[in-house]
Write a protein that binds this DNA or RNA. Structure first.
Lengths: 167, 167
DNA sequence: ACAAACTTTCATTTTTTTTTGAAAGTTTAA
DNA sequence: TTAAACTTTCAAAAAAAAATGAAAGTTTGT
């Protein structure tokens, strides 16, 4: 396998993995491409490499920047914009965790809190509902806190976690 | 908010959350419904409650059983099948972790290993590719191991993790 | 062996998500 | 201020994913 094949395989795999985790394929592919690129890439080159339209590239780059994991760069003397990905994996994981927590977990917690707060009329069905949603609330809250705490280490958090867990 | 509203809100929210994590909406909704149900439900009732077709219900119940988080039950004297969800949240998290690891993380690791093993010709581009994919391999492997170790506790793993992390 | 009571399958349809590309918008340089 | 070089937007098209429902399959009781 040569470089080109390997790069392609990586980009395709990352794209497929993204889909399975609710991230659109192109977005994941652009991210993959930027991750393994040693220098900033222009939109033109991304379009060319991934065979996608200008609109598609523009929208997904914007989304990646909203996630805080891709940055715009300007090259002296060049008019067009270049893009780079966050390459530090600890930092990447922290940013993804933070965003997913903010966008998805926090709103879910809010709903869990609401629905678990209904006045149960004492029937088994209602009692079980309140009990189960309360437990779920506690569980998700705890998980969210753990994630938050872990990523607070920021530097090398996974390595530190390994030490804590494994001993 | 009364019971019916609360239950509906929970099911809808769980469904939407599922979509964002790459799980189809109906599958997540069925799971939500079974989670908060104090007794096993028949396919007929699931179809009625979620307003979905027989085929849809059948396929998604099968998928949930493949994930090991929904079980078939037989009631004495009844011909039809009833379904329950795994209600222990620790167990649920363990099963989801194991499946996602098996289905998605392990195959991704295999690809990362492959592509990071190319013979670099020494150019900056290739060196960076090998370096970055190697780091990614290490990172994902470590994360997968942590997950595995954590879920090995099986009982109350999240609570135990909280203790470890927070102190 | 039959038929009633169910469940599963899968070709087709529907819905949802993603992509396209051309027009509108922006920035920069002369 | 004009125009070239670029980027963004968004309505329409395409692609992908999910849902339908009827036919095929299975199980159980008589």
């Amino acid at each position: 396998m040569d470089f080109k094949e390997a790069k392609n395989k990586f980009v395709q795999t990352w794209g497929a993995l993204g889909s399975q985790w609710g991230i659109n394929k192109t977005m994941a592919q652009i991210h993959a491409l930027l991750m393994v690129s040693h220098e900033p890439i222009s939109m033109e080159d991304i379009m060319e490499e991934l065979q996608i339209s200008r609109g598609n590239a523009s929208m997904n780059l914007r989304a990646l920047m909203d996630w805080g994991i891709v940055y715009k760069e300007y090259k002296a003397g060049e008019r067009k914009e270049f893009f780079t990905a966050e390459k530090d994996l600890d930092e990447l994981a922290v940013k993804i965790s933070r965003e997913r927590s903010k966008r998805e977990i926090k709103p879910a917690l809010k709903v869990l809190k609401e629905v678990s707060a209904i006045e149960s009329d004492g029937t088994a069905a209602e009692k079980h509902f309140v009990d189960q949603t309360s437990k779920l609330y506690d569980f998700v809250l705890k998980a969210d806190n753990v994630l938050d705490k872990m990523t607070e280490y920021k530097d090398n958090w996974l390595a530190k976690l390994v030490v804590k867990i494994m001993r």
